[in-house]
Computed example of a mutant assay.
Amino acid sequence: MAERYSSFKPGGRRWLWQRITAAFLVIVLAFHFFLLHFVNHADEVTFAMSSARMEQLSYYSLMVLFLVTATFHGVNGVYNALVNQGLTGTKLQVVKGALVLASAVLVIQGIRTANAWAGFPTF
């Protein structure tokens, strides 16, 4: 019988956070589809409507949390897939650094975009 293999350590936090972020993303994605495909149909959505939604602190906060959660979930999944494929040593450290850098750029640019839509000053 084949052995189960996973890069996640038993009882580790990365495994737990991968599941927690997945559950959160499913809920927020359902909210997104409900709001933008049933309440407001996609062809009716305008930049002004999106900007008005982003001006609400609750919606803005949810979208920023969605951005950070999705980034972590995706990067953590890619990293663990590479570990599962056998990547180790210096190559793994270089990939890890690149993933961290790409995540930081994505989150910073995403927050800058959210701030612009919400009418907040950008940095």
Rank of each mutant, 00 (worst) to 15 (best):
R19G: 06
A102P: 08
T21L: 04
E44R: 14
V105Q: 11
Y79T: 12
R53F: 04
A104R: 06
V75W: 11
A118P: 05
F33A: 06
V64I: 15
G97N: 06
Q85R: 15
F8E: 15
Y79I: 08
F34Y: 15
F34L: 11
Y5H: 14
N40E: 13
L35Y: 12
W117I: 05
H37P: 00
G89I: 08
H32M: 13
A102W: 12
L36A: 03
A114H: 07
A104E: 13
V94P: 00
K96V: 02
A81Q: 13
A98Q: 09
V68T: 05
M49S: 14
S51N: 10
H37R: 04
Q85P: 04
A30F: 00
L29K: 03
V45L: 15
A114G: 01
L106S: 11
L57C: 05
A98T: 12
P10G: 10
G86S: 07
L101P: 05
F24C: 04
V83R: 15
Q18G: 07
F31P: 02
L16W: 15
I20A: 14
S6L: 15
L67P: 03
W17R: 08
V26D: 01
R4P: 06
G12Y: 10
F38H: 14
I27N: 04
L35P: 02
E44C: 10
A52V: 04
L57D: 04
F38D: 07
L92R: 02
N76F: 06
H32V: 13
S50N: 15
T88E: 14
V105A: 14
G119H: 03
G77M: 03
V100R: 13
N76V: 14
L57V: 01
T21I: 03
T46H: 13
K9W: 11
N40H: 15
S6N: 12
L36I: 07
P121L: 05
D43I: 13
S50M: 14
A98K: 10
I20R: 09
L29P: 01
M1Y: 10
L106K: 10
V94H: 02
S6M: 11
E55H: 01
K9I: 11
E55D: 01
H73Q: 01
Y59N: 00
F66K: 05
A2G: 10
T113C: 01
E55K: 01
S51T: 04
M54N: 02
H32D: 11
F33L: 15
G86V: 07
T21N: 06
I20S: 09
L82P: 08
F24Q: 02
N115D: 15
R19K: 07
T113W: 11
P10Q: 09
L67Y: 00
S7V: 09
P121Y: 05
S7I: 09
H73F: 08
G77S: 05
F33V: 14
I20E: 10
A118F: 02
S7R: 12
G119L: 02
L62H: 00
R14P: 12
I111P: 06
L29M: 07
V94W: 06
A48P: 07
Y60V: 02
H73Y: 06
M1I: 12
V39R: 07
F47K: 06
T122C: 07
W17N: 05
F120N: 05
S58R: 03
A2R: 10
F38K: 08
Q93A: 00
K96S: 13
R112K: 14
A114N: 03
K9F: 12
L36Y: 13
I27D: 02
L36G: 04
Y59A: 04
T88A: 10
